[in-house]
């Protein structure tokens, strides 16, 4: 029984990790005042380029790097359109998701069904062999630690660093930040790019570690769930972890319940994460004023510097 619990927790963390990556990136993006609805598309682009690189070179870590780079490049299309050409952020984010879905399917066409050497779980002598806590604390794959490390770094960055303060300022009032003399558009480019890289890494995690293989549309809505997580987290990094673990747990619960054969049709169990997202959104959004207080005041608004 403890083994089953440990195994469940381990799987839960792998289910949560892509969400941690993507939601942490989107959180930075939104804190700067930019709403990028293209997370799903960027995850798919990251997943496919990461997988293709790993398949061609046999080097999974290089694949992961490529996943991040691909996500970043995709996000720059979005940044150019919304920040330089002032297009509507909602529509452009949707376009990015549609584009990413198509591009990833095209690139991944030849890789469907291929396998790669996945990035394995780490194993530290002694530590990982400790009873119970050994695997729980020291037995995950390295990317779990990377995602948690990045999340912690982002939390520190936002609350403690000067640049984090500037980023929050840009999201709170672009006009004021511009008046004081901060390069609003440049800062937002950087935030969007970071969001793209993180979404790409999240996608890479899916294709390089989680499954590990490429299938069309394999993000299966995780990009959208990551967006919901940012709202759920009230734009605070520490709460992203909580939300991701919640969704990881639901995923595992659903898989275990299907395996246990409770007589509930599999399709209904598979709906759980999506329905849970809706429920969570409803619970968190009820207090409209609170949402408005927490959300970056400039979220989604175009900004054009007058000179």
């Amino acid at each position: 029984m403890p083994d089953l619990i440990i195994a469940s927790v381990m799987t839960m963390m792998t289910a949560a990790t892509p969400l941690v990556f993507a939601a942490t990136g989107e959180l930075i993006c939104e804190r700067s005042g930019v709403l990028n609805l293209g997370v799903e598309g960027m995850m798919l682009i990251g997943a496919v380029f990461g997988f293709a690189t790993a398949a061609v070179t046999g080097n999974a870590p290089l694949g992961l790097l490529m996943a991040g780079v691909a996500g970043l490049l995709a996000s720059l299309i979005f940044a150019t359109l919304t920040l330089s050409l002032l297009s509507n952020q909602v529509a452009t984010g949707l376009a990015l998701t549609i584009f990413g879905t198509g591009l990833s399917a095209l690139v991944g066409f030849d890789y469907v069904g291929e396998t790669i050497d996945q990035i394995a779980a780490i194993h530290l002598p002694v530590l990982s062999d400790l009873p119970v806590v050994g695997r729980l604390l020291f037995g995950h794959d390295p990317l779990v630690y990377l995602s948690l490390g990045l999340l912690a770094a982002v939390a520190w960055f936002l609350s403690r660093s000067r640049w984090g303060m500037i980023l929050r300022a840009v999201g709170d009032s672009d006009v004021s930040a511009h008046a004081i003399g901060y390069p609003v558009v440049l800062i937002r480019y950087a935030a969007v790019a970071f969001g793209g890289m993180m979404a790409g890494l999240g996608g890479g995690y899916l294709s390089l570690v989680y499954t590990p293989l490429w299938a069309e549309n394999m993000a299966a809505g995780r990009g959208w769930i990551a967006l919901a997580l940012v709202v759920f987290a009230s734009w605070r990094p520490e709460r992203v972890l909580f939300g991701a673990i919640l969704f990881g747990s639901i995923t595992i619960l659903q898989l275990n319940a299907q395996a246990a054969g409770l007589g509930i049709p599999a399709a209904f169990m598979s709906m759980l994460p999506y329905i849970a997202t809706i429920v969570v959104l409803v619970l968190i959004s009820r207090d409209a004023i609170k949402i408005r207080l927490n959300a970056p005041a400039c979220l989604g608004r175009p900004f054009r510097a007058e000179r």
């Binding site: 303060m165 929050r168 300022a169 009032s173 930040a177 008046a179 004081i180 901060y182 970056p296």
Partner: peptide, 23 residues
């Protein structure tokens, strides 16, 4: 001092002042 202040509503007084000064 701007007519429509160049302040950040969701931030504290101290942060607002720090933002306009060198680190």
């Amino acid at each position: 001092v701007f007519q429509h202040f160049s302040l950040f509503e969701a931030m504290t007084t101290l942060e607002n002042i720090a933002l306009a000064l060198p680190p």
